[in-house]
Amino acid sequence: MKKQSYKNHVRFYPAHHFVYYPILIVFLGISVYFTITSAEKLVWGFITAIFVYLFWLAYMLRQHYALILQNRIIKAEFRYRYFVLTGSPFEAIEYKYTEDQIFALRFASDAELLPLMQRALVENLSGEDIKQAINHWKGDYNRV
């Protein structure tokens, strides 16, 4: 597996991103075309609405459950990692950090984590700023 970094940490699901969505977009485009050009505008408008709904539903279902579960797992792993490094529970200070900051901090190496956490609080760094500040990237290769 290729070593993960800021530039390549986005992950695609080929069947979904490169097969299902393109086919759905083509069908949606065809139905929009026929809605505009056909005498049966109501029928084609209904078909277009169905394709729009399928597109939205596929996106929302795929993302929703996986991301909620992934976020819970990341937080649990981060709490454990913080406890291992400091001996104190992260829950005591967790409220100071946004989810975006916590999700970005997980990519920091153990040596960088605590100083970067302090910097994130002092400078109010965004998740993107935190990711870009990481020198020794700790890859997350099991994301959904």
Rank of each mutant, 00 (worst) to 15 (best):
T48K: 01
M117Q: 10
P89F: 08
R79V: 03
Y82E: 04
I73Q: 10
Y33H: 11
S126H: 08
E99Q: 11
T98K: 11
V144T: 13
K138A: 12
I30F: 04
Y82V: 06
S109E: 09
W44E: 03
T48W: 01
F90C: 05
Q132G: 04
I74P: 00
Q4F: 12
H17W: 10
W44S: 02
A120D: 05
K3C: 04
I68L: 11
F55I: 03
A111L: 06
H16T: 12
F78H: 08
F78E: 06
Y95C: 12
N71P: 00
N124E: 02
A92W: 05
T86A: 08
D110H: 14
Q101K: 10
H16P: 00
F103V: 03
V32I: 15
Y21L: 14
L121T: 00
S5C: 07
A104Y: 03
K75D: 13
L69C: 00
I47P: 03
L69E: 07
R143P: 00
Q70H: 11
S109V: 09
W137V: 05
E40V: 04
Y53H: 08
Y82P: 02
P89D: 10
K2F: 06
L121Q: 09
L69T: 11
V19L: 15
G87H: 05
Y59C: 02
K96D: 10
R72L: 08
I130K: 01
K2E: 13
I36P: 07
L125T: 02
N124I: 00
S5H: 12
I134T: 11
L105V: 08
I130V: 11
D100H: 11
I36M: 07
Y82G: 03
I47A: 05
V144R: 07
A15I: 14
P14L: 02
K7H: 13
A133G: 14
T35P: 02
A133C: 05
W44Y: 15
Y21R: 04
I134C: 01
G45S: 03
E99C: 01
K41T: 09
